[in-house]
Design a protein around this nucleic acid. Sequence first.
DNA 1: GTTATTGCAAATGATTTGCACAAGG
DNA 2: CCTTGTGCAAATCATTTGCAATAAC
Lengths: 166, 166
Amino acid sequence: MEESIRERLDQFISKKGLRQTSQRDEIVDVIFASDEHFTPEQLFDRLRSAGSAASRATVYRTLALLDEAELIHEIELGDGQTTYDPNFLDRPTHNHLVCVDCGKVVEFEDENLDLINDCVTRRLGYQSVRQSLRIEATCEKIRMQGNCPDLIQARMEGKRLPNRKR
Amino acid sequence: MEESIRERLDQFISKKGLRQTSQRDEIVDVIFASDEHFTPEQLFDRLRSAGSAASRATVYRTLALLDEAELIHEIELGDGQTTYDPNFLDRPTHNHLVCVDCGKVVEFEDENLDLINDCVTRRLGYQSVRQSLRIEATCEKIRMQGNCPDLIQARMEGKRLPNRKR
DNA sequence: GTTATTGCAAATGATTTGCACAAGG
DNA sequence: CCTTGTGCAAATCATTTGCAATAAC
């Protein structure tokens, strides 16, 4: 699988007449070393931890490139930041559930959903290119026990949570 | 319906110990004079056309207030701007289809979709608070005729379109 | 060599904020 | 009055861009 990522990137790069650089390689390596979502800033931090000196500008430029090559996707988590998801190669039609209490993101797939999206789109006279469903929800733990470990974690990290409303 | 909006706002405002101001009234009037989506900047322009002198800062602050009161919702159209939708009072569970060619936004509802979202959410151990499905699609007109009137309109207005990819 | 890429710092664009003044209740 | 709301301008934050130096091919 690591192979196919590199292959896809190389193919995209040569098709476009671009160049293979150490920065791009480092960025791809760091991104796909994990399946976690990330913001440009988080990626920048991970890169520095991994010993890469790639600049912020290069990070932003490379993210745009990888998005164009469809190796990663932008996702909207509702917290006002651009977040990237590296898991669309494995699961091209997955969606996201965001816990409004702790900000935890759960990925899920559902065939029925894909089918209905397709029907709706056709009914409206369009052809679906891509879809993103974001479900905001509260988790059982909070409702039942009034608390959840992820919440404490999120507060400690100072994570920006989606609006809870009311 | 105009009535219920004012009522809801007044109720929210008094419940919170806030104050009724001419700026807030003007902003609500202008927003609900139409069912169109808008960015803060577009709203600001509409306000000035309507003779209101409310400042940008007040526009932003009031939008946050109306969002909190659930009179409007933020929606993600994939063009990198915050857009607000005033139509959730009428259709609380509607979703959006965005044409990747011309940026046109179509609102739609679907019971099956709502049902499946609910099942999926429960299956994951959560309780759904709200959901937003964005479908990106290409319209028939473009595919069949290679062009569409909305596209020309969009280009003329300099609208930022979502990424077309490839 | 020629052209793409990088890093830096400055620029941008949207949004937020501090503060003094104005206005609602 | 007392406190909230407003307008202004400055500040902030994420992201983009111009440009000279650097590195692919």
